[in-house]
Design a protein around this nucleic acid. Structure first.
Lengths: 139, 139
DNA sequence: TATTGTTATACTCTATAACTATA
DNA sequence: TATAGTTATAGAGTATAACAATA
């Protein structure tokens, strides 16, 4: 199989699987943007709105609105910056952390179930492929 | 590696790679919705707007607007239904087909380039993983 | 004067509800 | 009366421009 054919089939299968997994969380009350911002805040620890906007590749005004909705849902809290009065520090509230864990658990539950239905040989193939996929994604 | 751990790492790598590939077509003038509708019309052949809306999982009024934009760009053409005066049949115009091919070519070009940079052993792993990913996506 | 964040406003995409034309 | 499609209108989500507060 030449690279071009492998590229086409790999692209299609990855895109389809991503779409399938995304569909598996259709019942969450948060939008993907809100969930992504919350997850980033959880990974990086407390961030200012501007920094969070930069991480999420949205403009500051968009992040203002996004954060306001997360705050209204009591998923993030805001605190004054210790030295710079202009800045604000956002943190994930306990309820936000719980929501993230629940969301991950639900998505992984579906995929885990699918994986259990595979031949051991197929699981072995996937396990070796994961590292390669990861390298492709970050290149 | 237990299924749950494989599930987590597989989910992350697939999602990241999908995002990376999507980013590789940021310069196309069409939105993802427009491109998807055009591709579906290309795959299935002539369809009525309502059928196309059902395929794309959007409501008919949304498809009306979507189709109008594709028509304005001369990417699809519309024809009267032979027997039912209420219906309309949409087809991909030559320019639409050319655009689809160009879009696929550009995305595969990026991925092909990445694949050429891999060890032969890694390509072998991917080749065997593609089938498994495809089965997961369609389950 | 520069920087951080917010408010005001507009655009895109999609939805539901109401309307028109044909069966 | 039922169906296919369109138009009218509204609600997310994100953008740019203008503004307020602090450094």
């Amino acid at each position: 199989m030449p690279d071009s054919a492998l590229a086409s089939t790999l692209r299609l299968s990855v895109m389809r699987l991503a779409r399938r997994m995304r569909a598996e969380r259709a019942d969450t009350s948060l939008s993907l943007s809100q969930l992504a911002a919350l997850a980033t805040l959880d990974r990086h620890g407390p961030l200012a709105p501007g920094e969070l906007a930069a991480h999420e590749k949205v403009q500051p005004p968009s992040m203002t609105r996004l954060v306001a909705s997360l705050e209204a849902a009591a998923l993030v809290t805001r605190a004054a910056h210790p030295t710079d009065g202009r800045q604000v520090l956002l943190s994930v509230a306990p309820a936000g952390r719980a929501l993230l864990q629940e969301d991950r658990r639900r998505r992984d539950a579906w995929l885990s179930g699918q994986l259990r239905g595979l031949d051991p040989a197929d699981r072995e193939v996937l396990q070796r492929a994961v590292g390669v996929l990861e390298r492709l994604a970050s290149s």
